[in-house]
Design a protein around this nucleic acid. Structure first.
Length: 633
RNA sequence: GCCUCUGUAGCUCAGUGGUAGAGCACUUCACUUGUAAUGAAGGGGUUGUGGGUUCAAUCCCCACCAGAGGCUCCA
């Protein structure tokens, strides 16, 4: 057998294990969790019987982590079995950050986790080996007699079945695993949650325990520290601290924007409207409630009814009305308000209507997932051959907006799903248009096969969150092609051939839900907003009461200039006032004392703690206005 | 909707089967301060809501409401 390891080529006896091979090659095994050969990762103790390349996996690699966490899931399951012998094992995979295991027939709460951790520690100290065995399907079934979940899994598997023994614990498992429990030095069980067997809400509810583990205590501490950092980016916490929004049981899922929050929200709206103007979108205003008939025509009533709020009967006519969950159909009324020609296209209609969607209570999340939302929504009526260029244009808008917020976009192209309307030809042309637009604009993108809407392909744009990890990116913008809407609402234009044609509709939303977008900005910035978005752009602080009149005089000057400035003339100490301003993340604190008053200047402290003395008010306010105008820090 | 946890003053949180406490915030007074917390006094709570158990419930039990996390990661 020939093994290739980096540039060393050596022959080994068939049946050598990675541990033996490592010794011969002189590979240091400390930190090595598993090996990887051509056919995939394997146990360090498993014999290799094929010609192959070999790689040694440590925790640093994605595959190494997977092995490590999967072994940790076994460790946890072993502990659960000891403490709760009746618990039935189901599945326990590694996930992107840690692992979980689902159990059937146990009840436990967060308080029980400590007990399990102790048990796990005992197993780790016992240094139990992970022993791999192959058995027949029948033998495996016998091992898990009475466990319908394992029986279901085995039903789909082929003999021989691999099992792993760790002390007295046995689980069906493809592996590989770390050689022994001693490797699993540092771990933490995080939470207990409910999950459905195979993610299906009609099936059994299982108890899922989440955990993370690391090869050293230091790494676990680092993880814990990062989790602390995470809470600084919790938009709900920031919203509370900066007095931006409140939630109320009066209307769950519909946050109330407080004055400070409303300022930020309106600044975002202002930006959206500026972009509309710049890029030739016309704003329309359409009803919030309408007869359900509308949604029967659009098809939403059939597909989306569970998420719709009905208002029925609304009037004496006993006709059912509904709150709109989407703006789309209403733009057709605007299009049809007069006879349209191809010269009117592309017709770009922006709609900021308030939408209501019934979201599951458990899915609600601050500004991120709400039941009332407002999108910077647009519907573009267009001919098929205009699609590509129009989308390139949309990317221009998006680039401009993202640059302001320093957001990094990730593009995904979603193609035709199983259930769809429109001809395959039309789909191909539309998908190509989207692909070309992406490529001509120089974007890298991933393709999600079959993930398009039933009415057309789409591009979803995600933006990175504060961690910068693609897997936790936010869905921010969307661009969708729609073959359905115009047909359903009988929308037509006259072509250059003097005949009637049905336009294609593009759905576009650059910022998505504005509330949600605000949440993203809050989280990513940790509450440190640029001047143009800050509810209070500067706060005047007087040192003594003697300076209050000077403070009032300057305040009115700032307000005349349209700046959001406030005055703190309380009789607290300067230190206290500075601290207050700093905690509220106000970009500038203007300090006024006797010296400033005598010289008719101001002292400006910026958020980074640096202070400039003897500044002229005009100079400062001009600088501020410039920053606001250009939307820079 | 389902699972786990949580709900005590505006906020952050203690606490107890015998109707409640701290810090911050707020009000008042004193201090008049030069770049991240001056001191003192005071006001503020049907312990989420509704039932039940009990001589007695904020605490125990049930239901409801709201909040947090989870319900895609496949032997």
């Amino acid at each position: 057998m020939q093994i290739v390891y980096e540039d060393k080529k050596q022959k080994f006896e068939t049946g050598a294990t990675p541990i033996e091979i490592a010794k011969t090659l002189g590979v240091q095994l400390s930190g090595v969790i598993a090996a990887k050969i051509d056919s995939g990762p394997i146990d360090l103790t498993r014999k290799i019987n094929e010609d192959t390349k070999i790689e040694f996996l440590t925790f640093d690699s994605k595959e190494g982590k997977e092995v490590f966490w999967h072994s940790s899931a076994h460790l946890m399951a072993a502990a659960v079995k000891r403490v709760y012998p009746n618990a039935q094992l189901t599945l326990g995979p590694a996930i992107s950050e840690g692992f979980y295991y689902d159990f059937y027939d146990i009840k436990l709460g967060d308080n029980d986790l400590e007990l399990l951790e102790k048990e796990m520690k005992a197993i780790v100290e016992a240094d139990s080996k992970f022993v791999r065995k192959e058995v027949s399907k029948d033998e495996a079934l016998a091992l898990f007699k009475g466990n319908k979940f394992k029986a279901e899994i085995l039903g789909e598997a082929e003999s021989p079945i691999t099992i792993y023994e760790t002390g007295d614990f046995i689980d069906i498992c493809r592996g590989p695993h770390v050689p022994s429990t001693r490797y699993l030095k540092a771990f933490k069980l995080l939470k207990v949650a409910g999950a459905y067997w195979r993610g299906d809400s009609k099936r059994e509810v299982l108890t899922r325990i989440y955990g993370v583990s690391f090869p050293s205590k230091a790494l676990l501490e680092e993880y814990t520290k990062f989790e602390g950092e995470r809470s600084k980016h919790d938009h709900k916490k920031i919203g509370k601290e900066l007095e931006l929004f409140e939630t109320s049981a009066w209307s769950p899922g519909s946050p109330f924007l407080l004055p400070n929050g409303a300022i930020i929200y309106n600044e975002l709206l202002k930006l959206a409207r500026e972009m509309d103007k710049k890029y030739g979108y016309q704003e329309i205003i359409t009803p919030i409630i309408a007869k359900s008939e509308v949604w029967k025509t659009s098809g939403h009533y059939e597909k989306y009814r569970e998420n719709m709020y009905k208002v029925a009967p609304f009037s004496v006519e006993d006709e059912e009305y509904a709150l709109k969950p989407m703006n789309c159909p209403f733009s057709t009324v605007v299009f049809n308000a007069k006879t349209r020609s191809y010269r009117d296209l592309p017709l770009r209609l922006a709609d900021y209507g308030f939408l209501h969607r019934y979201e599951l209570e458990g899915a609600l999340d601050g500004l991120f997932r709400t039941r009332m939302l407002e999108q910077n929504d647009a519907h573009i009526y267009i001919t098929e051959d205009q699609v590509e260029n129009e989308i390139i244009r949309m990317f221009e808008i998006m680039k401009e907006v993202y640059a302001i917020f320093k957001l990094t976009p990730l593009m995904t192209l979603a193609t035709r799903p199983e259930q769809r309307i429109g001809s395959d030809d039309a789909w191909s042309r539309a998908e190509n248009a989207l692909r070309n637009a992406l490529e001509k604009s120089g974007y890298k993108y991933t393709i999600k096969e079959g993930d398009g809407a039933f009415y057309g392909p789409k591009i979803d744009i995600y933006v990175l969150d504060f961690t910068g990890k693609p897997e936790s990116a936010y869905a921010a913008s969307t661009i969708q092609v729609d073959f359905n809407l115009a047909t359903r609402f009988d929308v037509k234009y006259t072509g250059s051939d003097n005949r009637e044609h049905t336009p294609i509709v593009l759905h576009q939303s650059v910022m998505g839900s504005l509330g949600r977008f605000m949440g993203i900005i809050l989280s990513n910035s940790g509450g440190d907003l640029p001047v143009w978005l800050s509810p209070v752009q500067a706060r005047i602080v007087t040192i003594t009461e003697r300076n209050n009149d000077y403070g009032k005089k300057l305040l009115s000057k700032f307000i005349e200039r349209g700046l959001r400035v406030e005055l703190d003339e309380s009789n607290a100490t300067l230190d206290y006032k500075i601290r207050e301003g700093q905690l509220k993340k106000i970009p500038y604190i203007i300090v006024l004392g006797d010296k400033e008053e005598a010289a008719n200047t101001i002292a400006v402290r910026s958020k980074d703690g640096k202070t400039k003395y003897g500044v002229e008010l005009n100079e400062f306010s001009k600088d501020l206005q410039e920053k606001i105008k250009t939307r820079t820090l």
